[in-house]
Design a binder for these strands. Structure first.
Length: 420
RNA sequence: GGUGAGGUGGGUGAGAGGCCGAAACCAACAGUUUGCUAAACUGUCGUACGGGUCAAACUGUACCGAGGGUUCGAAUCCCUCCCUCACCGCCA
């Protein structure tokens, strides 16, 4: 959620930046500001009435003590009048505040100045590439066929148990999964993140805090009886650790493994073959809550962290700086990581690292004391990393005639060097 | 799920219609003392939204789990809900 103060001080800049994110309802800025004025004037009037009432109430106390009953009764009548008006104003004030909040919540975060112009993924800027494109032998297979041959995971079995998009990992496929999780977590812990195991369902307040509600309601599975949402990413429960907190020390660094649940309504075709897009997947997430002056430095640090892992895994990857139109609702700057899927001959997104600046903090009321002044923190998060497409790329890129070669860094976790 | 007890500032915890934004203690912070550390002493020590100001000072309102209600006046009384703890039941 944008800070009202930003709109107040620079409404035209806000509008211009909202435009860069292809946000249509730019006039909301003026509507919010109009409500803001109305809110303030209403509060002034209301506070004044309440102050009078408080004063009279005190006076009545004194009169009663002095035994002056009649005068007290007179004062009571005065209060009754004031109260009638203040009740009305109170209602108005609450209504205005609610409306203002409702509009503010509709506005996406403003893009950072370095965000490239553009609307579609084609406009994303390739920051750099790494690794080398593998040369596959003639009989190279896409990962879903490799998986079938080696019995690593089974999507049809998942259909029986749950439905499409819920893979069942088996044998060495399961072991590989667990190994990647441990490996990613250990990398994060080495980088100073504290591991947490969060709840895999969150309440409405948490889903709102990180920006999933109300914007992405349809993306999440909803356990309606209890009002909980299955987490689409560990970002949600983990970032909400600092909701409603005034932090004494910054930065706060958390990492977490969790399964992620996404409804992915409307996806189809080659996008959803194999592990390309599933409803439940595993991911290790890194989250930082930092001083506002440090957040872009930290963003680069997080990008390097992810990049380091991809290098160790020997994957061919590229880093994209997302354009205004392709960025998520709450992000000010996002880097996406894509790995080359050699058999499918396409790039697969495996990580997204974003700086939300105060967008989430403002919703969560996460603050710290900067020279005695309260300030909102900046929050960042990134996948480090999401498993399914990493697995897809590893299987495809590392296939040889004798089997799938496991990257050296992973072997101490898997206990095997070749999947065959 | 049942019964009982509770939810008060960073923590412990008092307050039981007006003197309460709330005692006291601890923690934290600043200072004094000290060769250093410790101790002792002094002071500061909630948040939000307004007003005010260059900025402060200062000032209004609200907030004692959440939402309603009673009352001139509610942390305090009443109702509903949520949560925590204890015991019982069920159970990995």
């Amino acid at each position: 959620m944008l800070e009202i103060n930003t709109l107040r001080t620079a409404p035209e800049i806000v509008k211009e930046k909202l435009g860069r994110k292809y946000f249509k309802d730019v006039q909301l800025v003026d509507e919010v500001l109009a409500l803001d004025e109305k809110r303030k004037s209403t509060q002034r009037e209301l506070d004044d009435l309440l102050a009078q009432q408080n004063q009279i109430a005190k006076a009545i106390g004194e009169l009663m003590k002095g035994g002056k009953k009649e005068e007290a009764e007179k004062e009571k009548a005065r209060v009754a009048e004031l109260k009638e008006r203040s009740k009305i104003l109170e209602g108005e004030f609450a209504e205005i505040e609610k409306n203002q909040q409702a509009l503010l919540v509709l506005m996406p975060n403003l893009p950072h100045d370095s965000v490239p112009a553009g609307k579609t993924p084609e406009d994303n800027e390739v920051v750099r590439m790494g690794g080398t494109e593998p040369n596959l032998h003639a009989e190279a297979l896409p990962h879903w066929e490799i998986a079938k041959k080696l019995d690593l995971f089974d999507l049809e079995l998942g259909v029986k148990i749950t439905g499409a998009g819920f893979p069942v990992y088996k044998g060495k496929g399961a072991k590989l999964q667990r190994s990647l999780i441990s490996y990613f977590l250990d990398k994060a812990i080495d980088a100073g993140y504290m591991e947490v195991i969060p709840p895999h369902m969150v309440n409405e307040a948490s889903a709102f805090g990180t920006g999933q509600l109300p914007d992405k309601e349809g993306q999440m599975y909803h356990a309606t009886v209890d009002g909980f949402y299955l987490i689409p990413t560990a970002e949600v429960p983990v970032t909400n650790i600092v909701r409603d907190e005034i932090l004494e020390t910054l930065p706060v660094k958390f990492c977490a493994y969790s399964p992620c649940f996404r409804r992915e309504a409307g996806s189809y075709g080659k996008d959803v073959r194999g592990l390309n897009r599933v409803h439940q997947f595993d991911k290790v997430e890194i989250v930082q809550v930092v001083h506002p002056d440090k957040s872009y430095e930290v963003l680069e640090e997080m990008v390097s962290h992810v990049e380091g892992i991809l290098n160790e895994l020997g994957l061919h990857y590229r880093i994209l700086r997302l354009c205004g139109g392709d960025m998520s609702f709450g992000s000010a700057l996002t880097y996406d990581f894509e790995v080359w899927s050699a058999a499918q001959k396409r790039w697969l997104e495996v990580s997204s690292v974003s700086n939300f600046e105060t967008f989430q903090s403002n919703r969560m009321k996460t603050r710290f004391r900067d020279e005695k002044k309260m300030r909102l923190t900046h929050t960042l998060n990134g996948s480090a990393l999401a498993l399914p497409r990493i697995v897809a790329a590893l299987l495809e890129n590392n296939q040889t005639l004798s089997g799938i070669e496991i990257p050296t860094a992973l072997q101490r976790y898997t206990g095997f060097a070749l999947l065959a």
